[in-house]
């Protein structure tokens, strides 16, 4: 230790303050850190393996129990198929993924 740099006394109550702060800190469950990544991977796998929901049949949308007549419409986007449904009331257009 130095003789030309005098050692100063720190303010009192340091240890008590530290104890109080340590008591405030939540003791996080360490097992959670091991389990959390596994759970995340599992959730991802489940999400990828669930088959996509089939689109609702047109009859469910139109309310007509009989399958309606679908007429394919020209589309500028090859990934989008447009159908015209011709029920009794007007003309509705619905987009579906190919």
């Amino acid at each position: 230790m130095s003789d030309w740099l005098p050692l100063l006394e720190p303010p009192p109550g340091g240890l008590a303050r530290l104890r109080a702060q340590l008591a405030e800190r939540p003791r996080r469950p360490r097992w959670l850190w091991a389990v959390a990544p596994a759970l995340a991977v599992l959730a991802l796998v489940v999400a990828l393996r669930v088959p996509p929901r089939n689109p609702a049949p047109v009859t469910a949308i139109t309310g007509d129990p009989h399958p309606p007549l679908l007429v394919r419409l020209p589309s500028s986007n090859s990934r989008v198929i447009l159908y015209a449904v011709a029920p009794t009331e007007g003309l509705s257009v619905r987009a579906e993924a190919p």
Binding site: L8, P10, G14, L18, R19
Partner: peptide, 15 residues
């Protein structure tokens, strides 16, 4: 153990 280290090092570290 951490409290013991604190008691030992508080003064020099404070300085």
């Amino acid at each position: 153990a951490i409290e013991e280290i604190y008691q030992r090092l508080e003064k020099p570290m404070f300085n």
